[in-house]
Design a binder for these strands. Structure first.
Lengths: 189, 189
DNA sequence: TCCGTTCTATGACAGCTGTCATAGAACGGT
DNA sequence: ACCGTTCTATGACAGCTGTCATAGAACGGA
């Protein structure tokens, strides 16, 4: 159950980026937050901050993808809007239990360097793609045609991201509920 | 037509925050970008970076609000999904003409300090509120009940923000078109 | 001309950033 | 016991951050 310093650093990187943004998070801060030896950062991540953050982003993308893939386990009558509610659910829990400090790491990264085209940008793109792909796959599993499944996946993730922004800013989860309730007609048709 | 150094700094602050994020933008960079005297920053903004950025955010919120309010001028048959398309339009133009460097300043700010509760956070909240209010007012003008108008406004802005993220990351405007087309059923019912 | 206000110029401050260089410890196999 | 690999420790580097202090210029009224 004890995670290695390396894993802890990746995890801490993700959490801190979620809270303070990409440029707002320093490597020393990450190392300290992970209770990891400072020298180990250099050893495990010779690619520097970009490598560490890149892995953290990919990890987060996987996490979101896996969560989406677990939707069928929760119901015997899967629907698109049910899937969306399932995607929103952990965010409601996060905010209710842990406060509004942490947002979405992908959004945070795109905000800082969405326009650039670096190796790190590629990893952010990959992280988002995994997530979107997983959501689309669930929709296809419900019988939705592949092209529309991707359109809906983009719509769902887009709306969720924006709703997260509202929720954090207002320190209130109701925007998330509003999104679920109001987006529904776009998903059921 | 010549804008004052003060105005130029506010404007430059907005543009740079849009591109590099809040923590990723330095005051010296803003001053230089604005071709403003460095000493003037201290004079016009004794509140420091927070004051400057706060004004930039409010300016951006006003800008978005005014754009939404101009929707009725563009059509004789206003509809919610028409309004949404109107909101998306300038972003398609921005990306097509100026590239994907600049995103939404509100989103960028929330990403960096959405969890905190500082005076600056309050101004971000105010900026977003102005925008949301303006959108809701347009919806009310179409005969939509006030509560639902606010729900739809939140939905529209949320989806737009997320779609902007997609577009910047993929260097492609189609997520914006996808959002407009796919969100429509949620707006027309 | 004098004076007060408004604006600009410049240098410095402590603190942080990411990165690198160098060294030492810990460990496992032989 | 020896040695090579893996991991950790520590100090330093140039460069940047936001802020402050102090000074001077420019300007407009009396």
């Amino acid at each position: 159950m004890e995670r290695s310093p390396r894993e802890r650093m990746v995890y801490s990187a993700a959490q801190l980026v979620r809270a303070r943004g990409l440029a707002g998070t320093g490597v020393r801060e990450i190392v300290e937050h992970a209770n990891a030896p400072r020298g180990s950062f250099q050893h495990y991540f010779p690619g520097g901050k970009d490598q560490l953050v890149g892995e953290a982003l990919l990890w987060a993308g996987d996490f979101a993808a896996k969560w989406a893939a677990r939707y069928p386990e929760t119901t015997s009558d899967p629907t698109p809007s049910g899937l969306f509610a399932h995607m929103v659910e952990p965010w409601k829990e996060e905010f209710a239990k842990r406060g509004y400090e942490r947002g979405c790491p992908v959004m945070a990264s795109v905000a800082d360097l969405g326009g650039t085209d670096t190796p790190l940008t590629g990893q952010i793109r990959a992280a988002l793609n995994r997530w979107e792909q997983a959501v689309a796959e669930e929709l296809v599993r419900m019988g939705i045609p592949v092209p529309r499944a991707h359109h809906l996946a983009i719509l769902m993730i887009s709306t969720l991201e924006g709703a997260i922004m509202f929720a954090r800013l207002h320190h209130d989860v109701t925007p998330l509920n509003t999104a679920v309730a109001t987006l529904s007609p776009a998903l059921t048709s």
